[in-house]
């Protein structure tokens, strides 16, 4: 059943008609040609489809497009609007934070969302004192990024990249 929706993606407004079954990820990739978010597992287990919905990191594969009419979506590509890399993406290059690169756009969006969460004082499973201020040490970064898998195993360098930007 078709529905017409509007999405604001990486600063551009798109009006499109989608079947209600279409996920946000498929709408972005297949309908709008925004291929920065990747389809890994398509079941919410790998994080490669992570985008920012407003300022919050979410999984585009488990979001129905029809349920996000009017939403503002930022993908990793949108974090580098004029070809100038976002500091987090720059740090991923500097620290060799990837090999094949398939998970990288999701890692970058997730890390940007995660740093905003930490900035807002949100605790994590690695936080010992839930009422104290948040210090982003490596254990915190690893825990907060656990929803993003990297099958090349670039984790130590991903953590190093995020650590650099968090300071």
């Amino acid at each position: 059943m078709d529905t017409t929706i509007t999405l604001h993606v990486d600063g551009a407004e798109h009006t499109l008609t989608v079947d209600t079954r279409t996920t946000l990820l498929d709408a972005l990739r297949d309908r709008l040609g925004v291929t920065s978010p990747k389809k890994g597992c398509d079941h919410g287990q790998c994080g490669s489809c992570t985008v920012l919905l407003g300022d919050r990191r979410i999984l585009a594969c488990l979001a129905l497009a029809v349920a996000h009419d009017g939403a503002r979506v930022t993908t990793a590509a949108g974090l580098a609007p004029d070809g100038e890399l976002h500091p987090l993406a720059r740090a991923m290059v500097d620290h060799d934070g990837f090999q094949c690169g398939y998970c990288t756009p999701g890692q970058v969006c997730s890390a940007v969302g995660m740093l905003a969460e930490a900035e807002a004082g949100w605790p994590s499973h690695a936080t010992r004192d839930l009422t104290a201020a948040t210090e982003l040490d490596d254990a915190e970064i690893r825990e907060r990024m656990s929803g993003n898998l990297c099958r090349c195993g670039a984790y130590p360098n991903i953590v190093a990249a995020i650590r650099e930007v968090s300071r």
Binding site: R57, L59, S110, G113, E117, P123, S124, H125, G147
Partner: peptide, 25 residues
């Protein structure tokens, strides 16, 4: 803040579940 201060077991349980992206949704 009130959940963390008054019901820390609930905050801790939530933080032990899923991932940052899923908890946001």
């Amino acid at each position: 803040p009130e959940i963390r201060r008054r019901y820390p077991v609930l905050s801790a349980a939530l933080l032990a579940g899923a991932s940052g992206q899923l908890r946001n949704m």
